[in-house]
């Protein structure tokens, strides 16, 4: 039995009085590709934002590569993690955002190079070389010195992926990465994700509305509804053969 790289143990999350997640249990194996689908407001994004340490869970444990993400041991008991602990554990995780969040004051090469140099203390020439290779891989080798404002949405999102990949995460999170794109630009971004998925060594969690894409790429699909995982299984089990009524009506809206 392979040890899971990510584990959620009865994770709850509330914003004020609103309970967004009501007990999430989840195991993700290394190199596994997981798609999370579900209606908006069901808490999909919150799951991966907690994994990226952008939101703190209200209760429950999140374990990444054997380390508890949000808690640390202090004098024999578990207390809330401090910034230092978080920095130690989140190095294994990378994230691509819906709205790209590229650094507008840097060229796209600098966008990719900055973190390896400053966070991983790589020397400049190595970081630069790796960044260029990664940008070439996502098809932007000719735009190295452009600023994000000069790129299309699809190109920006590909830069954002290169930027995250350069950090060599063990788990990569994709937060509705095509939702902010014009329809004709969605394809190029999905293509890159497909390529990354084929290489295989990284676990990937994708929050997405692209059902066909999920079917194609994901080993496992989770249907999140009203704060719980309502259905899970292989892509074809969940998307094509499920009898869950709410899932059916949710899928129906995408298939019409």
């Amino acid at each position: 039995m392979i040890e899971p790289i990510v584990t959620f143990n009865d994770v709850h999350k509330s914003f004020g009085d609103v309970k967004v997640l009501k007990g999430i249990d989840l195991d993700i194996k290394p190199a596994e590709k997981v798609a999370i689908i579900g209606p908006s407001g069901s808490g999909k994004t919150t799951i991966i934002r907690m994994l990226m340490t952008l939101e703190q869970p209200t209760s429950g444990d999140i374990i990444v590569d054997g380390k508890n993400l949000w808690k640390m041991e202090k004098k024999g008991s578990m207390v809330d993690a401090n910034e230092k602990h978080l920095r130690n554990v989140r190095g294994d995780i990378g994230m691509v955002f819906q709205h790209f969040n590229l650094f507008p004051h840097m060229t796209i090469l600098e966008n990719c190079m900055t973190a390896p140099i400053h966070v991983k203390n790589e020397d400049k020439s190595t970081a630069k070389q790796r960044s260029i290779e990664m940008l070439e891989k996502v098809g932007l080798g000719d735009k190295l010195d452009n600023y994000p404002s000069q790129l299309s949405g699809g190109q920006k999102q590909r830069v954002a992926m290169a930027r995250a990949l350069v950090m060599r995460p063990k788990v990569m999170l994709f937060d509705e990465v095509t939702s902010a794109l014009d329809p004709e630009l969605v394809g190029e971004v999905l293509e890159v994700i497909r390529d990354i998925a084929k290489e295989g060594e990284m676990a990937m969690i994708l929050v997405t509305h692209e059902m066909d894409f999920a079917l194609d790429v994901a080993d496992k699909v989770l249907f999140l509804d009203e704060g719980v995982i309502a259905e899970q299984g292989t892509a074809s089990e969940v998307i094509e053969h499920s009898t869950n009524e709410r899932l059916q009506s949710f899928l129906h809206r995408f298939r019409s």
Partner: peptide, 14 residues
């Protein structure tokens, strides 16, 4: 923008 801090956090910056 808040997304800038989040992106920087995701890259594990201090």
């Amino acid at each position: 923008a808040k997304g800038q801090t989040e992106a920087a956090t995701a890259l594990n910056m201090s």
